[in-house]
Each structure stands twice: as C-alpha cells, then as structure tokens.
C-alpha cells in the first residue's frame, strides 16, 4: 500500500504530462477566430510602392472576384519563408494584393526581385495605418476577401505549405 502511494506523485505527473503532450502534438484549432470576419474593408487607397506594379485600393476588392490581401515587409523573415507559397497560390490563379508595411521602395523592390512577385498590386502602407484599420497585429498576415469587399478569413502568421489548400479553398468558396 505504502509502496504504491509513494509512486503516486510520479503517476500524477505522468498524467499531467500526457495531457500537455496531447495539447502540444495534436494541436486543436489554433486559428484565432478573427472578430473581423464578416466585416467590410475600410475605404483606402495606397499609392504604388515599386515601379511597374500598381498600388492597391478598396475598389479592387469589390469587383466580384475574391482576392487575397497579404500584409508583408521586406524586413520580415517569415515573409521570405512565405513567398514560395504565395507563388504557388498565384499559379493556382488566386489574385493576390500586397500591402507593404513600414518599408522603403528600394528594399521592397529587392525583396520582390529576389523572392519573386506574386502580387497584382503592391500598396505603400508606410505608417502601418491600413494594417491597423484591418486589425492586423503583425507581418505576415493574409485576408481572404470576397468579391464584395468583405473579409472571409484572416490568417495570422506565414502561410505554410499545409495552409495553401485551405486558403485556395476559401478563395474558391468566396465566389
């Protein structure tokens, strides 16, 4: 009896360990369900950031085609990791609009040349005002916008290989 009791703390710890290991290795839905889903984009018009690529404004998102809005910056390392996935989405026919946050035209240009340009347009959000208005707390972040300018999905953090299908499906579903 006493022998068994002595192992009780150890057994209890193994139990706790099992619980947290489940939490860690089988992560349930970690998506932050954004309060912005269902909201309409605010009115905005961002000037072009780099030569040869137009700027981005609200009207782009209200013409019937669902689009992906990607908030990025050349100084953001996860954005580099994300760029191949954006190129894949582009190849799948998803129109992507870029918002360059707190960045310079030179650096953005270098970034697009080096890692490829998945964007239809790239807007210059130098002071992060649009980023704040659409409730983005960091870079990168992506929003699926239906053809009427409403946010359908907010993806926080970089788009990984395993997220591509979900996002493409959301864009298709928003039609």
């Amino acid at each position: 009896m006493r022998k068994a009791l002595i192992w009780l703390p150890f057994v209890a710890f193994v139990g706790v360990l099992a619980v947290v290991a489940i939490g860690l290795f089988r992560p349930a839905d970690r998506d932050v369900r954004s309060a912005l889903v269902g909201h309409e984009l605010p009115e905005f018009a961002l000037p072009a950031m780099v030569e040869g690529v137009p700027g981005v404004d609200k009207a782009r998102f209200t013409q019937g085609t669902p689009r992906l809005l990607n908030v990025f910056a050349s100084w953001c390392i996860p954005c580099i990791a994300e760029s191949p996935q954006l190129m894949r989405l582009k190849a799948m026919g998803v129109p992507i609009e870029g918002v360059a946050v707190r960045d310079t035209p030179e650096n953005t240009g270098i970034f697009l040349r080096r890692y490829g340009n998945p964007f239809v347009g790239v807007g210059d959000d130098r002071d992060g005002r649009l980023q704040l208005a659409i409730g983005s707390s960091g870079v990168p972040e992506s929003y699926v916008i239906d053809g009427k300018g409403r946010i359908v999905l907010q993806h926080i953090g970089d788009i990984r290989a395993e997220d591509v299908e979900t996002i493409a499906a959301a864009v298709r579903g928003a039609r």
């Binding site: 002595i6 192992w7 703390p9 150890f10 710890f13 193994v14 360990l17 947290v20 290991a21 860690l24 290795f25 992560p27 970690r30 953090g157």
Partner: peptide, 25 residues
C-alpha cells in the same frame, strides 16, 4: 506560438520532474 519550443521544454520537464519524482519514489 512555436511548437518545437514546446517540445523542447516538454522534454526538459519530463527529464527533471519525472527524474526527481522517480528518485523520490
């Protein structure tokens, strides 16, 4: 939110707490 870091700390926990409690027993 980085799961690999979680795995690392979890391994440390297992080692230290599990070890100490086993030693105790």
């Amino acid at each position: 939110l980085d799961p690999t870091r979680g795995e690392f700390i979890l391994a440390l926990l297992t080692l230290y707490i599990g070890g100490a409690l086993a030693l105790f027993a």
